[in-house]
Structure formats: structure tokens, C-alpha cells
Amino acid sequence: MKEININTPLTLDKVENLKAGDRVYITGTLYTARDAAHKRLVESIKEGKELPFDVKNSIIYYVGPSPSKPGEVIGSAGPTTSYRMDDYTKDLLNLGLKGMIGKGKRSLDVVKSIVENKAVYFAAIGGAAALISKSIKSSEVIAYDDLATEAIRKLYVKDFPAVVVVDSEGNNLYNIEVQKYKK
């Protein structure tokens, strides 16, 4: 497995360098959004309103963290299951979203849109939330505060660990690896 350090913003040249199966360590800015925030983001797009952050060349992390203990940057913060965001994903990819971090399968439609828009889907380890939090260095709610855990946060991360699952050519690590171990 190739190991690659990437810095945000996630520009096209960086995306094209990533292949399904690569292990990445991300440094820079991630925006958090899950179900309720996605619904609002896409409603805003449809109404022609400005979004709370610039989606172009950005990475969205599907997460709803647990509350931070006093003195901590954030609580436990592992990925949530991605398919629930599938209905909203195309609209964001069309605006230039380049990366998504979550866990689990994506719809064929989303994979098609990932290829068309030259983007990438990463998986982080679901349930390794305390470990993942160690790579989050700052966290600030920038929108939808009323959604509590589902609010949009701007995170600064250092060496955030993830794996490329769907690359910009549509290769899918879930399909490739499972075949090797199936009996």
C-alpha cells in the first residue's frame, strides 16, 4: 500500500495522483457535515443562496462528534455511514467538492459523479473515534449551530488517517479487496 501525505486544498493534480488502496495522511482543513447539514446545504444550492464555506477543492468529513470534554479540542469523532449522504452528493461535487471522508458503500450514481467531476472518496475507520480525534487540532462551528452534533465545523487536522476507496477513475477498493478473501 502506497502512503501519501496530502495537504488541503485538494486540487485536481492531487486527486489524480490518488489510487484506490492508497493510504493517505491529510493535513489542513476539513468541513464536517452529515445528514441534516447536507439537507440544508443542498436546499441552499437550490435556492441560489451562498454556502457557509467554499466547496471548491474542499473535503467534507461525514461526522457528528461527541461533545468535547473540558480542555479537549473535540470529542470522539469517527466517520458515519456515507450512503445517507448519496442523495445530496452530486450537487456538491458539481460545485467542485473534491473529497469526502466517511465509511461504507456509495451509490452507482455517486461513483459516476466522482469520476465525472474528478473527485475522491476516502474511508476512515468507523468506530476508531478516539484514535481519529488525536489528529484533529482545532474545531470551530461555522454554520447551523442549532443542529448541535450535526452542525458544520471547520476542522484543522494533522496527518488525518484515511484510505482511498473510490478514486477519480472509479476504481473501488471495496470490490477489489473483498474478492481476494471470498471463499
Binding site: K69, G75, S76, T80, I125, G126, G127, A129, A130
Partner: peptide, 14 residues
């Protein structure tokens, strides 16, 4: 992750 969660008494999973 389980070690970290137990030591810091934070949730294993968010």
C-alpha cells in the same frame, strides 16, 4: 482506539 478511549474515558465511537 479501545485503549485510548478507556484511558481518557471518552467514547470508543462517537
Amino acid at each position: 482506539n479501545a485503549d485510548i478511549a478507556s484511558e481518557k474515558q471518552v467514547p470508543i465511537c462517537q
